[in-house]
């Protein structure tokens, strides 16, 4: 999804206004002219400046307002795209309750199947990967990966 520069510029002006409005509300340091709001206000000014430049160039360019890429017209690609995002969300939600090994195995299997990898290969990768990663990260690098449902039979 490619936005016309003018549209992008308008969005930036809006973001700049919101940032400035929030920054205005930061409490001042007593007796000082410069504090928490100074830098965000400078950034907002910069964003607004970029927005103005982009609006100028966008109006001259005469490109369509929104350019939809070809993949957005292909349902398979859109599902692939969304499945990556969904996978990460599942990881986040199931991380603690299911634990690292089970979540990763499940998500990997689903993703591999979605991308057209054979049943056998998917299953092998989905089982081996979380176990290897759990050993490397959990045991060797001391990352506290949650055990989740496997906690009662925790062997590592």
């Amino acid at each position: 999804m490619r936005l016309n520069d003018a549209l992008l510029g308008c969005i930036l002006l809006l973001v700049a206004a919101v940032v400035a409005a929030i920054a205005w509300g930061f409490p001042a340091v007593p007796g000082q002219d410069y504090g928490a709001s100074t830098f965000p206000l400078l950034i907002a000014t910069g964003l607004a400046g970029c927005g103005a430049v982009l609006i100028g160039s966008g109006l001259r360019e005469r490109a369509p307002i929104v350019e939809w890429q070809a993949w957005l017209g292909e349902p398979r690609r859109v599902i692939d795209f969304l499945s990556v995002i969904t996978a990460i969300i599942v990881w986040i939600l199931a991380w603690r309750p299911l634990g690292f090994i089970l979540t990763t195995a499940g998500v990997l299997f689903a993703l591999l199947r979605r991308f057209g990898v054979s049943w056998k290969t998917s299953l092998a990768i989905a089982i081996a990967t979380p176990l290897i990663m759990n050993y490397i990260f959990g045991r060797l690098l001391l990352v506290p990966l949650p055990a989740g449902l496997l906690a009662p039979i925790r062997w590592w």
Binding site: A87, T104, V107, L108, L111, T129, M133, F137
Partner: peptide
């Protein structure tokens, strides 16, 4: 790529 990308994703999450 269809094998590599899910694996990369797993490493990124960790």
């Amino acid at each position: 790529r269809r094998v590599l990308m899910p694996l990369i994703l797993a490493f990124c999450v960790v």
